[in-house]
């Protein structure tokens, strides 16, 4: 048995011949917020569903709150709060009715029901709207209410599957504040997202791609550790042609479009200042490259492309 509230060992899920999650190892400590980051279809939801006991692992095993997810899934369920990717409260019930329903299902002690429901309503910022049908509420309220329903029984472990997708930025910020409060009270939280900027809110980030855990560490660690070269920002036009030209150069490890500019990862000893001249030779105008600190997205792009080129060689 693992001391960590969430522990996965070689967790694998296959659907027929397709491997959705491959040999995933993950340890999450008490009170820690781990961001599960990767593109759609990378295996984030499948992993979370296995950890909730909703999918049976094809191989490997996992423990949540000290219980085996395959053999003791009912005990796991009593110790987790889960927000599925799709909004999953009852739209034809009011906020308060949804809360009361889940309080009954989780058998929240009777003398605490009133207090916990009031707390959840306050947390969701739903005061004055608690008697409105949930389907009439805006996205941010719905998400916070769903979180409120998932934590009514004060679960030690929370699995939140893309809780902020489709929620306006301000509400997103507020949602992350709530998550931090919960972690501060000792909850262990795994949050998936495909928004890279949200990774900065997490204690640690697990990057997942094509079913494999690519890297795991604090946002700072990942940014510093993973780049094999130096990163430059390059303003140039047209972007598409420049990208193609740069990717064919031997000293360029990776190039990718970021907004209206390119991020170029160069070999350590390469001369970045020569790039505009090279591009000019191909009728591409470029300003002088500027060395920048990598974002998590840079790290992720590079990790994924390295894996792809490795796969290509195999």
């Amino acid at each position: 048995m693992s001391a960590n509230p969430v522990a996965a060992f070689g967790l694998t899920k296959r659907f027929g011949s397709f491997t959705a999650v491959e040999a995933l190892d993950l340890q999450i400590g008490k009170g820690e917020i781990v961001g599960f980051i990767g593109p759609n279809g990378a295996g984030k939801s499948t992993t979370i569903r296995m950890l909730c006991g909703l999918l049976r692992p094809s191989a490997g095993r996992a423990e949540v709150a000290g219980f085996d997810v395959a053999r003791q899934s009912e005990a796991v369920r009593a110790h987790i709060g889960y927000m599925s990717q799709k909004f999953s409260l009852y739209g034809d019930l009011t906020g308060r009715e949804n809360l009361r329903f889940f309080a009954g299902i989780y058998r929240v002690p009777r003398r605490e029901i009133r207090e916990r429901i009031s707390f959840a309503i306050a947390m969701a910022g739903l005061e004055g709207r608690e008697e409105a049908l949930v389907k009439t509420l805006a996205g941010g309220w719905k998400q916070r209410l769903a979180l409120g329903c998932a934590i009514l029984h004060r679960p030690p472990v929370l699995f939140l599957d893309e809780p902020t997708s489709g929620v306006e930025p301000q509400a997103r910020r507020r949602f992350w504040d709530l998550i931090h409060n919960l972690a501060g009270e000792g909850a262990t939280i795994l949050v998936s997202t495909h928004a890279m900027d949200e990774a900065e809110y997490c204690n640690r980030v697990a990057l997942i791609d094509a079913g494999r855990l690519v890297a795991i560490g604090s946002p700072g660690e990942l940014r510093g550790r993973e780049l094999a070269g130096e990163l430059f920002e390059l303003a140039c036009a047209p972007l598409g042609a420049a990208l193609e030209a740069l990717q064919s150069l031997p000293e360029v490890i990776e190039a990718a479009i970021f907004a209206d500019k390119l991020h170029v990862l160069l070999e350590k000893d390469a001369n970045a200042l020569s790039l505009p001249a090279i591009l000019a030779g191909r009728q591409i105008s470029a300003k002088a490259p500027r060395a920048i600190a990598p974002t998590l997205e840079d790290v992720f792009v590079q990790l994924v492309s390295r894996r792809e080129s490795k796969r290509g060689r195999e």
Binding site: L54, R77, S84, K86, S88, L89, R107
Partner: peptide, 13 residues
Amino acid sequence: ERGTMEELISTPV
């Protein structure tokens, strides 16, 4: 169909 079942079966019900 509405997606509420996934939440329901993640509870101890």
